[in-house]
Amino acid sequence: MSQLFSKKNKDVFFNPFNIDNPVTVQVLGICSALAVTAKLEPAIVMGLSVTVIVAFANVIISLLRKTIPNRIRIIVQLVVVAALVTIVSEVLKAYAYDVSVQLSVYVGLIITNCILMGRLEAFAMQNAPWESFLDGLGNGIGYAMILIVVAFFRELLGAGQILGFNILNYDCIANTGYMNNGLMLMPPMALIIVGCVIWVQRARNKEMQEQ
């Protein structure tokens, strides 16, 4: 039991939260991170879906790693991921139809999300299933964290709401002259907020700064 949660495994799980974050440090999976963050709810669902898919794809590829011929490994990885994504997409359509309409093509695009291919290539092809599972879970949660931070600011400042509940849309606030900034809901602000998140993170971790 103690072996399952050794120091190394803890690092594998917790590093993606900060110093090895998939979005801000490894620069993987940017496309969907930006596109689904206009509201908090789809961002949370997307984060969860990616976490589940990365964790299980990592386990499956790690189990198969000794039997996959090196030349066709990309196709094998793509097929495993595509099958998992199809399952998640059908589940979303059945149980959370509204969110799946909002996410539109971005659920399908989890297949080509670089986090998946990146982690499969860099980790699951060399490591045992349990470590790969932790790595997938850690990276998925690290990705979800960035999505939630970006979506929180965009929904709060853009629509004055959190998860659809009014926070800033009251007369007493409107009377002070405050107005919601509709630009926050537009695509450009997603990029600029991620830029600011990277700024804050690198200002706190000196060793990450580029010269």
Binding site: P188, I192, G195, R202
Partner: peptide, 23 residues
């Protein structure tokens, strides 16, 4: 460019401004 913003950070902000122009 301010040191923490160098590389990735400023690239994101540049793309954001380009996207604003394309709007």
């Amino acid at each position: 460019v301010p040191t923490p913003l160098r590389g990735l950070g400023i690239t994101f902000i540049t793309v954001g401004l380009m996207a604003m122009a394309f709007m």
